[in-house]
Design a protein around this nucleic acid. Structure first.
Lengths: 227, 227
DNA sequence: CGATTTTGTGACCGTCTTGTGACCACATCG
DNA sequence: CGATGTGGTCACAAGACGGTCACAAAATCG
């Protein structure tokens, strides 16, 4: 799945592309509107990540032109929280938007959600990692050739966070924040939740491909079983 | 089918009209309340897309005046958090509303739904999904080779919403909003309505092709029976 | 007007989810 | 050595949730 990233901020573009690549996208870059359209026509990406402030051609214009030619999903990036531009962008046919600053996880989640909604699931669109899939529509966890496993709201949020940052250790506080929000729960609750999630995704009989690893004193990480 | 788009934001109006044109509407534009009414009388559009914030004449006033003269369907545009205006508009006779930001697909879907409900459908047609049909004229639900089932207003709106988004989970709040409008009912009412709708569309003796699935903690979805 | 249908409200029940405390094994450190 | 903190497991209770029912209020219709 090709993703075209259009941003004149070189550093930000770099970060975005790095994040998307790690999530399995094949990333193309453009730093202004004109080359964005050129690359769009040349490479036919499956999704476009589009900054609104651009030199040589405004983001909204790029959005419109792309939309006249195809219905490729577009995710907009905008600084201002004046949702004026956002409204225009969405009206022009953009499918979603993210206001800066944003977390890489956010971007990936939105991009995949948009692809899912558009029905263009090259990879089922959902959140995948080494063969397993998280289905946000039904809050299920799916392994190939296995019936889906229903997750509760909290279990789903935890799993989602771990998958978005797979093979990365997330601190206890970070996880609590993602799952329960600020002023959330305490360590004991997270411990409990991890236990419950493990029992659903790491049954002893199957050769589970992923598992939740505890890093003492730090937090947890979703790892892939080696070989 | 003529559609009159009333919005003082030139860019947004442009975009909305572009979207509607692509969906097959013949679009007229007005950027303030007075000209909106002029064009309305001159051209007799089949539907009006009306922004609530307008110069020279408030959107609510325009809505009221149109409604005193005819029953042309009206879809209002409003910024989020102005529930008050939305309520007033609906009370004044508007047929539906969309809060910004919205997606073009939403707008078209709503406009067509409103037209369908109003019985004036030169465009698409009844709402069908895997063989079953929703007939907006008679508020009936039809299965092949079965007598039509009469639905109440609320049951119909719920079914319509579920069918427009079939095989997608809709949150409880979304459903409440679509069925009862803003400041609508509570979860208990939706629960009750789902129960009543189920008894009509999922009788035990027939091999029902669709069913309403509850996703705990999230909402409901209209699903098709296994493969 | 009365009769019927539709809609809203409350209650009950079984189930699932979530929060809490307890216990154990293990490691670290004074 | 024991005190302390860690993560893993379990049991239990409070609460939320969905499904069902009965009944009253409100709307509709003849």
């Amino acid at each position: 799945m090709k993703a075209l990233v259009v941003d004149d901020d070189l550093v930000l573009a770099d970060v975005v592309s790095f994040t998307l690549r790690r999530a399995g996208f094949d990333v193309l870059l453009a730093h202004d509107g004109v080359t964005a359209l050129e690359r769009f026509y040349a490479e036919s990406p499956g999704i476009v990540i589009l900054d609104l402030q651009l030199p040589s051609k405004d983001g909204l214009e790029v959005c419109r032109e792309i939309r006249t030619k195809s219905d490729t999903p577009i995710v907009m990036l905008s600084v201002r929280d004046s949702d004026d531009d956002v409204v225009k962008g969405l009206a022009l046919g953009a499918d979603d938007y993210i206001t800066k600053p944003f977390s890489p996880a956010q971007l990936v989640a939105r991009a995949q959600a948009v692809l899912r909604r558009a029905g263009k699931n090259p990879l089922p669109g959902k959140l995948t990692f080494v063969g397993i899939t998280l289905n946000p529509d039904r809050h299920t966890f799916e392994r190939p050739d296995e019936p889906p496993i229903q997750l509760t709201q909290l279990e789903f949020k935890l799993m989602e966070t771990l998958m978005l940052n797979h093979e990365q250790v997330l601190s206890v506080n970070t996880l609590i924040d993602r799952v329960w929000g600020p002023n959330g729960a305490d360590r004991a609750m997270l411990k409990q939740l991890v236990y419950r999630l493990r029992r659903k995704i790491e049954p002893e009989d199957t050769d589970n491909t992923v598992y939740i690893e505890a890093v003492p004193g730090i937090g947890y990480a979703l790892m892939r079983r080696n070989q």
